[in-house]
Amino acid sequence: MAAVLPTPLISAEALRARLGTDAWPVLLDCSFDLMDTAAGERAWAMQHLPGAHCAHLDRDLSGPKTARGALDGGRHPLPDRDTLAATLGRWGIGPDTPVVAYDAQGGPFAARAWWLLRWMGHRAVAVLDGGLAAWQAAGGPLESAAPTTPVRPPYPASGPAMPTVNAQRLLQGAGDLVVVDARAGERFRGEVEPLDARAGHIPGARHRFFKDNLAPDGRFLPPEALRAAFGRHGVAPTQVVHQCGSGVTACHNLLAMEAAGLHGAALYPGSWSEWSADPARPVARG
């Protein structure tokens, strides 16, 4: 099953064709609202794709904040790998399990789940292109029942399988790297800052709002359009570091690059929430 799962994106039609077969994947409903952190779970309880687990951004897809708060890991630190391995096992995910993540917000939270599974070494994971809306448009059924996926042992992860970059690496001089910020333009330019300590962006960072990866119907742009967009940076994919507010929507840009065939870009997990929390770090505006 795992070998034939379309990745990193799967269409609603392709997913629906698996309904009722042995090829039905483990589904993760990652819907979330940063301003109402219980909203996604409430929506999941009302209706979700058949068998979908609720993957909560704060509880399941992030680690707890440290005593130093945003200074150490930002608003959504990466989860401890052993804890995440146990969570994946609780959802019934093993190395041979196909997994599809989705949300109702254009894909940023599903992309975070996708990246975390890839980080754990799991390759048979895709994001539902167009999310919940695309599934409903394709006539896919919804249910409110709790999932019954058999629990498995903790995921047998090895070392991190996706590259990351920390603030120290960026501070020491990143002339060989291109930092790409996924936040909305007004936040990148420093005109507003509703969530973090200071407004602005990492000096030298370039801007790619994650929603620009989507067509008007909420599905990802064709691979050739994404290749053109990210190719404008003029560097190899392995020289690109993605960041956002807290390491979540940056995963949308990472997913877009993967869908475009541009492999090897890194994530700065702490992102702007970590960077801006330290007054000694430089900030650019405009």
Rank of each mutant, 00 (worst) to 15 (best):
residue 80 D to L: 02
residue 80 D to Y: 02
residue 80 D to E: 15
residue 81 R to A: 04
residue 81 R to H: 01
residue 84 L to T: 02
residue 85 A to C: 08
residue 85 A to K: 08
residue 87 T to P: 00
residue 90 R to L: 11
residue 93 I to E: 00
residue 93 I to C: 00
residue 93 I to G: 01
residue 94 G to E: 06
residue 95 P to W: 03
residue 96 D to G: 05
residue 98 P to T: 00
residue 98 P to K: 01
residue 100 V to C: 05
residue 100 V to W: 13
residue 100 V to G: 03
residue 103 D to C: 12
residue 103 D to F: 07
residue 106 G to T: 08
residue 108 P to V: 07
residue 109 F to W: 14
residue 111 A to G: 03
residue 112 R to M: 14
residue 114 W to N: 07
residue 121 G to R: 04
residue 123 R to Y: 05
residue 123 R to V: 15
residue 124 A to L: 07
residue 127 V to S: 11
residue 127 V to I: 14
residue 128 L to G: 03
residue 129 D to Y: 09
residue 129 D to P: 03
residue 130 G to H: 06
residue 130 G to I: 15
residue 130 G to R: 12
residue 133 A to W: 07
residue 134 A to Y: 08
residue 135 W to P: 15
residue 137 A to L: 06
residue 139 G to L: 06
residue 139 G to P: 12
residue 140 G to F: 12
residue 140 G to M: 08
residue 143 E to H: 10
residue 144 S to L: 13
residue 146 A to F: 06
residue 151 V to Y: 03
residue 153 P to R: 02
residue 153 P to T: 02
residue 155 Y to T: 08
residue 157 A to V: 14
residue 161 A to H: 02
residue 162 M to I: 06
residue 162 M to V: 06
residue 164 T to N: 02
residue 166 N to S: 13
residue 168 Q to R: 13
residue 170 L to Q: 11
residue 172 Q to M: 13
residue 172 Q to F: 05
residue 172 Q to G: 15
residue 175 G to M: 10
residue 179 V to Y: 01
residue 182 A to P: 09
residue 182 A to V: 13
residue 184 A to Y: 05
residue 185 G to P: 10
residue 187 R to H: 04
residue 188 F to T: 12
residue 189 R to M: 13
residue 192 V to A: 07
residue 196 D to E: 10
residue 199 A to C: 10
residue 201 H to T: 02
residue 202 I to R: 00
residue 203 P to D: 14
residue 203 P to W: 07
residue 204 G to Q: 04
residue 204 G to L: 08
residue 207 H to W: 05
residue 208 R to L: 10
residue 208 R to E: 10
residue 208 R to G: 11
residue 210 F to E: 07
residue 210 F to Y: 10
